[in-house]
Design a protein around this nucleic acid. Structure first.
Length: 171
DNA sequence: TTAGTGATATCC
DNA sequence: GATATCACTAAA
């Protein structure tokens, strides 16, 4: 198991998102327990022109993290009760990131963060340096398939139909 | 299909 | 200060 470093995340989100599927997300709890789960699904959000990307709404305190350096952890609350976790990718000042959409065991972005006990306290940290949250490569390379992104009907026909969701193929 | 929940942005 | 919106989930 090798922890992913800055060079892994320092690429376009359209490269990082498929590469993240099959990687192992690791979380050390306060009592020392280490949780691990393989990533089964990711989505890419790319730039201000991508109407599904939060940065398309403008640069605000909330979206500021998208402009930070790759590897930064972006966690936000959705529908008042669900924490969603992203990793920032690409060049600083170019807002883009990858949503960790599901694990092998816990399907659904909010189920995964609930299992891993991730909340806003991780927002602004980094997958490269955080002592209790990181992503590792154990050499496994799953077969992938793609699909459109979920829950972005508001983004218009073009962006809604980008095949920017990557899913580990079963079997 | 719908309720539940609260941060965020936008409009007074 | 008020309101509308939202990268979701569970129950029915």
């Amino acid at each position: 198991m090798v922890r992913l470093d800055g060079t892994f995340f320092h690429r376009d989100c359209l490269e990082v998102a498929p590469d993240l599927v099959g990687k192992v997300i690791c979380r050390r709890l306060p009592d020392g327990t280490i949780l691990q789960e393989r990533i089964a699904e990711t989505e890419a959000y790319r730039g201000t022109e991508d109407l599904a990307c939060h940065a398309s709404k403008g640069r605000t305190p909330r979206t500021e993290l998208l402009y930070r350096e790759s590897g930064v952890i972006y966690v936000y609350l959705c529908y008042g009760m669900h924490w969603l976790m992203n990793v920032i990718t690409g060049e600083p000042e170019q807002p883009q990131g990858v949503l960790i959409r599901a694990g092998e065991v816990h399907s659904g972005p909010a189920k995964l963060t609930r299992y891993l006990q991730i909340d806003r306290s991780f927002n602004g940290g980094s997958f490269v340096t955080h002592p209790d949250l990181w992503i590792a490569d154990d050499g496994f390379r799953p077969a992938l398939r793609t699909d459109v992104r979920v829950g972005i009907d508001y983004a218009g026909e073009y962006w809604k139909n980008r095949p920017w969701r990557w899913i580990a193929d079963k079997g």
